[in-house]
Design a binder for these strands. Sequence first.
DNA 1: AATAGTCGCAACCGCCGCAGC
DNA 2: TGCTGCGGCGGTTGCGACTAT
Length: 294
Amino acid sequence: MAASQRSRSSACSPGAPVELDDDHGGAPEQADQLRRGPWTVDEDLTLVNYIADHGEGRWNSLARAAGLKRTGKSCRLRWLNYLRPDVKRGNFTADEQLLILDLHTRWGNRWSKIAQHLPGRTDNEIKNYWRTRVQKHAKQLNCDANSKRFKDAMRYLWMPHHVDADDDHRRRLLQAQHQQHAADVAAAAAAAGGMVTSSSDSFATAESYDDVGALYDASVHAGEILVSGGGDWAQETAANQGLWPAAPDQSAAVQAAVGGGCQFQDPELSGWVQGFSEGITENFWALEDIWKIQ
DNA sequence: AATAGTCGCAACCGCCGCAGC
DNA sequence: TGCTGCGGCGGTTGCGACTAT
């Protein structure tokens, strides 16, 4: 679990008591014993086991009752961002990236609101993704990540792969994600001595390819997965399906789309995107990921 | 092989709004 | 009405891992 992650060994090393400076950190009598910094495996297990037995919520009293020398706030954050069984880890899929782009256009930095539409993703993860990757590429392009121009370009680059993906491909993607997820849940359960169950993750119980597909379809219907969840780009994509070339490689896809009648709202975008695709996309992990899968 | 620079992300910080008293 | 405790949010930090030289 935590052992597989890079830990943050700061001046507040694990086990080092610190003074309480949290704004609502919990029991004052424990202020001189509170720990900060990276969580240990033992702490993770304690928290997971306690929540499995008693449920989550009331974080300060939970921290005390569980015997954790952490603030309630820290426990909540650790659980929500890392320990929850339904937390999905790994790279964002093309669908997720497009969705983030679309939702960010609507809501800006409302990360928690955006995260509500990406099952298994946390606001912290989406925020980190946006700040480290999206903004990096916007910087490379010398434009604002919030600008319409940048977002149009990103949608353009991702959309051909997005719409070319047929249902089987989507299901394979989803299956892979949830197999990993199920493995993570199983690992968590094993680490917790079998006390953790994947109660909220129906995908983890899927036994066959068709099960995953059915769950996927149901989730899309239920709005849990917003593959084409009402964003303008998605509607445009659906309307234009068939116009995109089935590209054998990344550069060919971009070239074909640029020269293939793609209509940009910004008349200058076509040439700009072409330059982008020639110079920068090799660093764009999302595209690599997409093509790797194909 | 050593060093410097960059990246990714877990964890922390500070603020806000709400509920209960 | 003001105080206190709490959950939640967005922004920021800092360090290990990775990459370039």
